[in-house]
């Protein structure tokens, strides 16, 4: 069954790393729904969060193949209920429409204004994809000049602290 899986991949900070990971997806004709990357809690180790739509078996095989890459420490595939995740979106709305109604919508959606210029305002909201899109739909009534949504940042509930895995790996190697 096709479902969303979050791949969490921990790797060295290396030129070409992203390509090594994404070709494992493109080879199998799996599309990337979203992707983010940044340094994690362990200095020098980067965390890729890649959301894909496929069946569970395939998600796990891909995670194993990612982990096989020499400079990948660990890779996990987790389903929606095993992960806590957020995305962030920015919306640029024309200021002439900044009416009381718009304020009501922003309050209802728990969104905030992060920049105010003479002709537009930039609104920010954090949440799940559906929440961000539902705000987008409502804002469209007022006109949306620009919309940008981030990839997912995610943490998985079953994962041990990365440092524990690193310690295990060090044990194996010695």
């Amino acid at each position: 069954m096709q479902n969303q899986y979050t791949l969490s991949v921990f790797s060295e900070h290396r030129i070409g790393m992203l390509m090594r990971l994404t070709t494992l997806l493109s080879r199998r004709h799996v599309n990337i729904e979203s992707i983010t990357c940044s340094e994690c809690e362990v200095e020098g180790i980067f965390r890729y969060t890649i959301v894909v739509c496929c069946d569970e078996n395939l998600a796990n095989k891909i995670a194993r193949q990612m982990e096989k890459q020499v400079e990948v420490f660990k890779a996990f595939a987790h389903s929606g209920c095993e992960t806590v995740f957020r995305e962030i979106a920015l919306y640029k709305v024309p200021l002439k429409t900044l009416s009381g109604q718009l304020e009501l919508v922003l309050r209802k959606h728990n969104a905030s204004v992060v920049a105010l210029e003479s002709s537009f305002a930039i609104v920010e909201k954090t949440g799940h994809e559906e929440d961000l899109l539902s705000l987008l739909r409502e804002l469209k009534n007022f006109g949306v000049l620009e919309f940008a949504r981030s990839g997912r940042v995610a943490m998985s509930k079953p994962m041990k602290p990365l440092q524990d895995y690193l310690n295990e790996m060090e044990l194996y190697n010695n």
């Binding site: 060295e12 020499v70 194996y172 190697n173 010695n174």
Partner: peptide, 11 residues
């Protein structure tokens, strides 16, 4: 002699 991200022989 080894790389921290690489376990060539699983235990």
């Amino acid at each position: 002699k080894g790389l921290r991200s690489y376990v060539p022989y699983p235990k």
